[in-house]
């Protein structure tokens, strides 16, 4: 298995004095499905955004696909970013554009000059976008405005946009936090199946412990900017959970096996 991503002693101080990451080190291999769990403010979002330099780090090294992230600038940075797909809690679509246009945004990193600016995509790209929407069960919404979709549908467009980039790594920032339980299951299933099929490594920030345990091949636990757990879901004992969330297990809303039985067929 090839190494895709490597964090070495990464730290981040924000200008307002917040010490978001302290000496974080971990690695992600090709095809892994890694969940990052931890309470709000533990640095989960900072980790994801430092990988594609949406947030610059203060100290340490991040190596992505053999390149040092902090050294990339301008054109090189754009090239690096297009290798990394990103999915957001609030979907972050351009709501006044059509679904197809939003999916094709995934190709912008590959386009230069006026073609990219005015969105003159190649027929090949358009075909691929439509195929992807087919795969996600969204083909009938190609020409709907993104604002007309439901939450689960918007997130599927977000997934399609990220996959359009042909990424090696997918970053998901609380992808199901704004969704109802049944849409959430669809989205998690899609993320797992699509990344597995394409051998894309996937890092997901999650608040739902049960989801993390069910889907991940590995879990990273963060607490106050430090990695306190890094291992397979089976090893996530009550002790560890208490250390991550800094409170006893009874005080946590963890969710039960009940979620698994939900039917995903009628989801929105």
């Amino acid at each position: 298995m090839d190494k895709i991503l490597k964090f070495e002693n990464v730290s981040k101080h924000y200008p307002n004095g917040v010490h978001a990451l302290k000496n974080v080190s971990f690695e992600v291999n090709e095809g892994e499905f890694v969940s990052i769990i931890g309470p709000s403010g533990s640095g989960k979002s900072t980790i994801l955004r430092s990988i594609n330099k949406l947030i610059p780090i203060s100290d340490g090294n991040i190596t992505l696909d053999g390149l040092l992230v902090s050294q990339q600038k301008g054109k090189e940075l754009r090239k690096l970013r297009r290798k990394v797909g990103m999915i957001f809690q609030n979907y972050n679509l351009v709501y006044s554009l059509s679904v197809l246009q939003n999916v094709l945004h995934g190709r912008l990193g590959y386009m230069d000059g006026l073609k990219g600016i005015f969105g003159l995509y190649s027929e090949e790209d358009k075909k691929e976008a439509i195929n992807l929407l087919n795969e996600l069960g969204m083909e009938q919404f190609c020409y709907n405005r993104a604002s007309d979709l439901s939450g689960g549908q918007k997130q599927r467009v977000g997934i399609a946009r990220a996959i359009m980039q042909n990424p090696k790594l997918l970053l998901c920032d609380e992808p199901i936090a704004s969704l109802d339980p049944s849409s959430a299951k669809t989205i998690m299933d899609l993320l797992r199946d699509m990344t597995r099929k394409r051998n894309i490594a996937c890092i997901v920030n999650l608040h739902q412990l049960d989801v993390a345990i069910k889907y991940s091949t590995r879990i990273i636990g963060l607490s106050k900017g430090e990695v306190v757990f890094d291992g397979p879901p089976e090893k996530l004992t009550d002790d560890v959970i208490e250390r991550i969330y800094n409170t006893s297990r009874e005080n946590l809303m963890i969710g039960g096996a009940g979620n698994d039985k939900k039917d995903s067929a009628d989801c929105a």
Binding site: L77, L80, F88, L93, Q165
Partner: peptide, 10 residues
């Protein structure tokens, strides 16, 4: 949406 386009490398 500006953040997401930044992330795709636009």
């Amino acid at each position: 949406c500006v953040e997401s386009l930044q992330a795709v490398g636009a």
